[in-house]
């Protein structure tokens, strides 16, 4: 779900751009390191990014200037870690703005923060915590995708509430949160189920790849 072009006032566009750039720069540094070590991972990254784009172009409308769709950032985070996912999400968001008129250029920073940074970081933490605790990676990926998706929307509610703090910040936040909680939870569950189906197939057909990326739970490797 993206905040649309022109929706945020200038000062908030700048704030979110600054936050996004710091994190994305770190992600680029990480990607450079990975590519220097194993040059053949470049194509894998590109194709995974394209996959994220395709997933997120299946969109459903919701109120409040944004719309909902599976974002695929939970899966990306579990496979590549949050820093790399942030860079991929950035490219995906630019493509969405220019190819689908979905999101925008001025709100790019805010969208990167919600979809490319907070969502994947949460998903990654959840996934790592669950697998460390010895829970199977299928259950872990469900919660990672579910919470990653949900937290993306919570972040957007915060961003909108910061931009439109009326009558007070907390009242606006409650308003936005209620709307997103109602519309988002079923969609987040949907994303979770979808990710589990994908994950199962991945485990069945490409276990070596998952192992190489270090994405499997310790007891499954």
């Amino acid at each position: 779900m993206h905040i649309m072009e022109g929706y945020l006032p200038l000062e908030w566009c700048i704030v979110w751009f600054v936050v996004a750039i710091i994190f994305v720069a770190y992600g680029i540094y990480q990607i450079k390191k990975i590519v220097d070590e194993t040059p053949e991972s470049k194509a894998l990254l590109a194709v995974s990014g394209a996959f994220m784009f395709i997933l997120s172009s299946l969109k459903l409308p919701s109120v409040t200037g944004s719309c909902s769709h599976p974002c695929g950032n939970g899966l990306g985070a579990a496979l590549f870690g949050p820093a790399v996912t942030a860079v991929l999400a950035t490219i995906v968001l630019i493509f969405q703005a220019l190819l689908l008129a979905h999101g925008g250029l001025t709100t790019l920073g805010a969208n990167i923060v919600s979809m490319g940074i907070v969502g994947p970081v949460v998903a990654w933490i959840v996934y790592k915590a669950f697998t460390k605790a010895g829970i199977s990676s299928t259950i872990a990926i469900f919660f990672a995708a579910f919470l990653g998706d949900l937290l993306t929307y919570v972040t957007t509610s915060f961003q909108l509430a910061f931009a439109f703090p009326a009558p007070t910040f907390s009242a606006a936040l409650t308003n936005f949160l209620v709307i997103f909680a109602v519309t988002q939870i079923p969609l987040a569950v949907g994303e979770g189920i979808l990710t589990v189906i994908i994950w199962d197939r991945l485990k069945a057909y490409k276990p070596k790849l998952l192992d190489k990326l270090g994405a499997l739970a310790p007891n499954e490797a």
């Binding site: 053949e40 194509a43 590109a46 194709v47 996959f51 994908i198």
Partner: peptide, 26 residues
């Protein structure tokens, strides 16, 4: 749901093969 999951995972698996081919050709 099942169809969409099958679709997405097949695309992902194919994309992995594609990425390998792409890398080799490059």
């Amino acid at each position: 749901f099942k169809s969409l999951g099958a679709l997405a995972s097949t695309i992902f698996l194919r994309s992995l093969d594609k990425s390998e081919t792409l890398q080799h050709s490059l």
